[in-house]
Write a protein that binds this DNA or RNA. Structure first.
Length: 507
DNA sequence: TGAAATGTTGGGGCG
DNA sequence: ACGCCCCAACATTTC
């Protein structure tokens, strides 16, 4: 081998922070003698949705792990920051003599547009670019309904996706050995991703970011909670969720790896109905993730605008105090407050509770769903623009295949149903811990003696409800009635009104 | 992957 | 024995 024939490829890591089942990395190893692994920090390029503090915390840890994993295989991660990703990568290509640039695709509107421009720029500078699907089971544009239009309903989308799963190629192995230069970069610490004040103890206690942590989580889930997932996923008091969402978001594990692991795990006991239902329920959740990316690709404006245009006119009541009470876990509704505190402390919230807190914010407090989406965006370690957008629009009732607006969760009933022993409430609301099961999820209704005995003083040690549930529910339904008419019909009618009333009957 | 209001049914107490 | 009422349990409808 001579240096004249040596080819060097850049692998641009973004949210595919893993070595196994990484198509871009595999392509680089296949086509080039030398591989340069690079991460470019340019959060401004994410526009209005640059990652929040919890997400940054995770990113820092995941990058550290990726660097260590690469070093074990012979190269290190070059971290750069610059005026733009394109400029940083062009410079790096010049420094290393790289002729190829590989990456795995992203689907957020800002990132996708950036990648498209970048590809044109780099190609013009004689760097051959190639991108891959490393993050989804199916590309968002591959699945279309019979009218060749994007799906707007989950079930037919899921059917179409499932039909393709049998032909899913097996995950790619991690390269055993990597060689190539490791050009100078900045340190991961210098990116300023970690919090300046140490609020992250709860996160560090609960999560192990990085590829190894992701696979340990996947294995642990397959070994234990998977078998009872169908029931267990609705129990915030148990630890029966997969908790894979942040690992999937950062690409520390691929959805393909998850599907294969789950199938292998349930194969021996597939004859048991509970196992079958649980495996299907989990795969369905992976399917919702795919659906979210499908929708974000086809309807990129939905990150801040409702897919259902009627909701442009919805009478939100912007109220900073109500929003803040919700954010801080001081709404007076224990299940909601427990969830919001779990979120703040751990960077995560049980999915069932996410629906309940979102319903209260949007319907009972009547705050705009984007305000909730922004808060989740900044506080969740699994904050993902596609999932977050779909989740909030779904709960609001303004999105694709959305829950009907009038589906308004009652936090008291939800607590009774899904936290029967009140374990979840006591874990996150120490000030209510001594209130008995009968009253802890609705302390404002408890007899004074019970509260006194438990050391609770409403309005002092724990807030009274910031709004009355029944009253605010009725107000929300009334606000919904105002916009219920389809936009087209409303326009037609106001058009007629301008021309004066037109009587076509009743003579 | 709601909740509340309203409607229906059927068992049992009771005159 | 019978009809009547009560009401819990369940079903349906509405938001």
């Amino acid at each position: 081998m001579t240096t004249t024939h040596r080819t060097t490829a850049l692998v641009w890591f973004r949210r595919d922070l893993r070595l196994a089942d990484n198509p871009a990395l595999a392509a680089a190893v296949r086509h080039a003698d030398h591989v340069v692994a690079v991460y470019v920090h340019a959060p401004e390029e994410d526009g209005a949705w640059r990652p929040g503090a919890a997400s940054d915390w995770w990113l820092h840890r995941s990058l550290v792990r990726l660097d260590a994993d690469l070093q074990r295989r012979g190269i290190s991660l070059t971290v750069r920051r610059g005026a733009s990703s394109a400029q940083a990568l062009a410079e790096l290509a010049r420094e290393t003599g790289a002729t190829h640039l590989y990456w795995n695709r992203l689907y957020e509107p800002a990132a996708a547009a950036r990648d498209e421009r970048l590809e044109a720029e780099l190609t013009a500078q004689d760097v051959a670019c190639e991108s891959f699907n490393g993050g989804l089971l199916s590309e968002p544009w591959e699945l279309l309904n019979s009218q060749q239009a994007p799906y707007r309903v989950f079930t037919p989308f899921w059917r179409a996706l499932q039909a393709r799963l049998d032909g899913l190629p097996p995950p790619l192995a991690a390269p055993k050995r990597l060689r190539g230069p490791s050009p100078r970069g900045v340190s991961i610490d210098s990116l300023g991703l970690l919090p300046r004040i140490a609020w992250d103890a709860g996160l560090a206690e609960r999560w192990v970011p990085g590829e190894t942590g992701a696979h340990e989580r996947l294995e642990a889930f397959c070994d234990t909670a998977l078998a009872r997932y169908d029931e267990g996923r609705n129990r915030p008091d148990e630890d029966d969720g997969s908790r894979l969402s942040p690992h999937l978001h950062f690409g520390e594990v691929s959805p393909r790896q998850c599907v294969v692991a789950v199938r292998n795990a349930v194969m021996p006991t597939m004859d048991r109905p509970a196992t079958k239902a649980s495996a299907e329920a989990f795969l369905r959740q992976v399917g919702w993730r795919e659906f979210a990316h499908h929708l974000l690709h086809h309807f990129p404006h939905t990150t801040e605008a409702p897919l259902d245009e009627r909701f442009e006119r919805f009478a939100w009541q912007d109220d900073a105090a109500l929003l803040q009470a919700w954010q801080r876990g001081r709404t007076g509704y224990p299940l909601v407050d427990a969830g919001m505190r779990e979120l703040w402390t751990t960077g995560w919230m049980h999915n069932r509770v996410r629906m309940v807190v979102a319903s209260l914010l949007v319907k009972n407090l009547r705050q705009p769903w984007v305000a909730g989406a922004r808060w989740f965006w900044d506080t969740l370690v699994d904050a993902d623009l596609a999932n977050n957008t779909l989740g909030w629009q779904w709960t609001t009732g303004c999105g694709a295949d959305a829950a009907p607006f009038f589906r308004i969760f009652n936090p008291v009933l939800q607590a009774e149903r899904h936290d029967p022993r009140r374990v979840y409430l006591r874990r996150w609301l120490p000030e209510l811990a001594r209130v008995p099961d009968e009253w802890i999820h609705r302390p404002w209704q408890a007899p004074a003696a019970v509260l006194a005995e438990a050391g609770v003083e409403l309005g002092v040690t724990y807030p009274r409800p910031v709004v009355d549930f029944g009253e605010s529910r009725r107000a929300a339904l009334a606000a919904y009635a105002q916009i219920r008419e389809p936009v087209a019909a409303a326009k037609a009618r106001s058009g007629m009104a301008e021309r004066g009333p037109r009587r076509t009957s009743g003579r």
